[in-house]
């Protein structure tokens, strides 16, 4: 399991498992609610919800599912909503390629990862072949 350093002081808001399309929808809704609670407007809510939707779908499609951590923390003086997606799937061989617009190894559009990155304030990804992939995104007002 690939983990990010915990240099940020966070408060855990929730921990979820994604293993089917239902989970994608319900956890996505939960995150929209947290964004709303954090005082984000409809545009920011939609951005973070769409970004996590991409990450969840990737976990579900390529790694058969994974785990989601939702946290709140202080990042660069912002009150950030932090979502970490961890899977133990096949990992990504070429991260640079996977992060580029239009690259898909399957039948997708290839905009999930680069698109998610553009939708949030901070995007980090770790991946190792045969070990898994972890993505952490942060969004603030």
């Amino acid at each position: 399991m690939l983990e990010f350093g915990n240099e940020i002081k966070c408060e855990l808001l929730g921990k979820f498992i994604i293993e089917n399309e239902y989970d994608i929808v319900t956890v996505r809704q939960t995150i929209r609610q947290f964004a709303k609670d954090a005082g984000m407007g409809i545009v920011d809510q939609t951005r973070i919800t769409t970004a996590v939707s991409e990450l969840f779908r990737n976990m579900y499609n390529y790694a058969g599912g994974g785990e989601v951590l939702i946290e709140r923390g202080e990042v660069e003086n912002h009150n950030a909503l932090i979502v970490t997606c961890i899977d133990k799937g096949p990992g990504i061989e070429n991260l640079e390629l996977a992060m580029s617009d239009g690259f898909t190894s399957g039948m997708g559009m290839g905009y999930g990862l680069p698109g998610a990155k553009r939708l949030v304030d901070r995007f980090e990804i770790l991946s190792k072949v045969n070990e898994g992939t972890s993505v952490r995104i942060m969004k603030w007002k």
Binding site: I42, V43, Q45, T46, R47, T50, E54, D101, M109, Y111, P114, G115, A116, R118, L119
Partner: peptide
């Protein structure tokens, strides 16, 4: 397509 969704689609790059 709401304004928020329109913006999001643009950022996704679709």
């Amino acid at each position: 397509i709401s304004p928020a969704i329109a913006q999001t689609i643009v950022h996704l790059g679709i």
